[in-house]
């Protein structure tokens, strides 16, 4: 028939509007430039870019954090001090060549002895530690009036012994010079176990232990604390 701009009712009803789902005569699918879908190529590339930059960023940050935990001392400690856990803190240090000169935290150095002085906050050099400490531990009792109240473990002290000569003159002798305090025991205020004296534990070579013990038995003892040289 020839065309007409007007659509008649007969024509309207003549047009079947079925769905293609049950199409018995399907056509092959066209291969197109873009199959429009939410899985657009650009979307996928965008997601990949975001993912890759997150991963790369995380790696860079992780790589930048090349720090290793090492031991440092909390306060100034003199050579000869036996370390306790309370003396030590962990600090993170940026790795560079020679990091193994310091002590990693895998093992605790508590119980080892310092071979030289270490200042407060300084890293603990591996070379400054000795495994065993020789010498004898001697407890130096001293009345609180004769020892600076600030004395603490790790500090160097001098021990003076003052004796009265038969002629009535006083003689003062230095029996220990510059030994580190291993431990300080202040007088306890327990009702039954009260001790009036401060006990300072020091480590001395066995040969000087005799002179020290004699002085402790026979003389008045004074302790002076040295400040760090």
């Amino acid at each position: 028939m020839t065309g007409s701009g007007q659509v008649t009712e007969a024509q309207r009803s003549a047009v079947p509007t079925g769905t293609a789902a049950s199409d018995p005569r399907p056509s092959p699918l066209a291969v197109r430039l873009h199959r429009p879908s939410w899985l657009d190529l650009r979307l996928v590339i965008g997601l990949l870019l975001v993912l890759v930059s997150v991963l790369v960023g995380a790696r860079i940050v992780a790589a930048a954090d090349r720090t290793t935990p090492v031991w440092a001392v909390r306060s100034e400690l003199a050579a000869g001090t036996a370390l306790t856990r309370a003396d030590l803190v962990v600090v993170r240090m940026r790795v560079s060549a020679g990091a193994d000169r310091y002590l990693a935290t895998a093992r605790s150095p508590a119980g080892l002895t310092l071979t030289r002085d270490v200042g407060a906050g300084e890293l603990l050099p591996a070379a400054a530690l000795r495994a065993r400490s020789d010498g004898s531990l001697v407890s130096v009792p001293v009345s609180p009036q004769h020892v600076p109240p600030t004395v603490r473990a790790g500090q160097r002290i001098d021990v003076y012994a003052t004796t009265k000569e038969p002629g009535g003159t006083l003689r003062t002798e230095r029996v220990l010079a510059g030994v580190p305090v291993q431990e300080v025991r202040f007088p306890s205020r327990g009702a039954l176990s009260a001790t009036a004296e401060v006990a300072l534990v020091v480590r001395v070579p066995p040969e000087s232990a005799v002179a020290l013990v004699r002085a402790l038995r026979s003389a008045e003892i004074d302790v002076t604390a040295r400040s760090r040289p």
Binding site: A21, S27, R32
Partner: peptide
């Protein structure tokens, strides 16, 4: 025939052939 025409066409989507 109709089936041959369908084979020669391409489906952009199941309801839209070209």
């Amino acid at each position: 025939d109709v089936a041959a025409l369908a084979r020669l066409a391409r489906a952009v989507n199941p309801r839209f052939r070209v």
